[in-house]
């Protein structure tokens, strides 16, 4: 089966001389929910810009459902819906016009464009606001407007560039449910996000870009198996004046009632508890310091120290 997206040796050097992409390779299967991650400046937005024709391609090739984005540009563009990182709609236009006009640019007749606009504005709980100017919406509503606009021509590939940035938890979870729903209906989704919990919750496959190159591309569960060590925070019942070293374990005392423990895949938390109990240290609760994907991400991108 043809890939939804196939990128081979993609390179890009901007006029300023900045080499944003040094050879990105990606392959996204049809129907996938795919995470594209990387630290700031890694090249994610440039990659998305090239896929969506907002940035001129440097070298290499990009195919969307088998359509080359240079030779078969119109067909490739017809398959894509983009939710950009920044709000890029006319702030002085009513929502219904923004969404219906976008459908029109894809050749959808006005009457049908309004029907599509109604469908997606309702799905994203914006129908009541349809006659309001975009500038009068809250941040969360503007994010949802970007999604409605990207979906109005019913693309086969939806690309979301940090769609939940600045959105509160309740709306974020509603957006997750909505994205899962449209993915279940067959839309391939590529997601970039800085909320790695989001990527872990939603995506089945993942690629990590760093310094303009693909450094990892695999199934999410396979990638998480590569995590050799997890960091846990232990809250203690009684204050501890000084922690004696526990052989074989990397444990640091953060304050009198909090410990930080690094547990490798070969070690067991039960054994650690046993050692602590032996020292009359009672653990009240335990949590991951950060989410598993986040730890792995920091290890792979060489930013582990910052964690």
């Amino acid at each position: 089966m043809t890939c939804a997206l196939s990128i081979k040796n993609l390179t890009k050097t901007y006029a300023s001389g900045v080499e944003a992409l040094k050879g990105v390779d990606l392959s996204v299967e049809q129907g996938d929910f795919f995470a594209l991650l990387g630290p700031n400046g890694a090249g994610k937005s440039t990659t998305i810009g090239i896929i969506t024709s907002l940035v001129n391609i440097g070298g290499g090739s990009v195919e969307v459902f088998g359509h080359d984005i240079v030779r078969d540009k119109e067909a490739a563009k017809s398959c894509i819906g983009l939710v950009p990182q920044e709000f890029n709609f006319n702030q002085f236009e009513p929502l219904i016009e923004i969404v219906a006009n976008q459908a029109g640019y894809y050749g959808i007749e006005r009457k049908r464009a309004y029907i599509h606009a109604e469908k997606y504005l309702k799905k994203l709980s914006l129908w009541d606001k349809r006659h309001e100017m975009a500038r009068d919406l809250s941040g969360g509503m503007k994010r949802r407007l970007l999604i409605a606009r990207a979906l109005v021509h019913e693309p086969r590939l939806l690309i979301l560039d940090e769609p939940t940035a600045g959105v509160d938890i309740e709306i974020r979870r509603q957006m997750w449910d909505f994205l899962r729903e449209i993915n279940a209906q067959g839309t391939t989704i590529i997601l970039t996000t800085h909320y790695l919990e989001e990527a872990e919750q939603l995506c089945r496959n993942i690629a990590i870009i760093n310094k303009g190159c693909t450094i990892e591309s695999s199934a999410m569960k396979d990638l998480l198996l590569k995590l050799h060590e997890e960091t846990f925070i232990l809250d203690l019942r009684e204050p501890l004046s000084e922690l004696q070293a526990i052989p074989g374990y990397k444990i640091t005392q953060i304050d009198k009632t909090t410990l930080q423990a690094h547990i490798s895949r070969e070690q067991s938390i039960n054994e650690l508890y046993a050692e602590l109990t032996r020292r009359d240290i009672c653990v009240l609760s335990m949590r991951n310091k950060s989410n598993r994907l986040e730890e792995l991400f920091l290890q792979l991108t060489g930013n582990g120290e910052a964690a």
Binding site: N88, F89, R149
Partner: peptide, 12 residues
Amino acid sequence: QHHVEEMLVSPM
């Protein structure tokens, strides 16, 4: 305002 991108991403 970058809304020219609405047209640039479309097949127009």
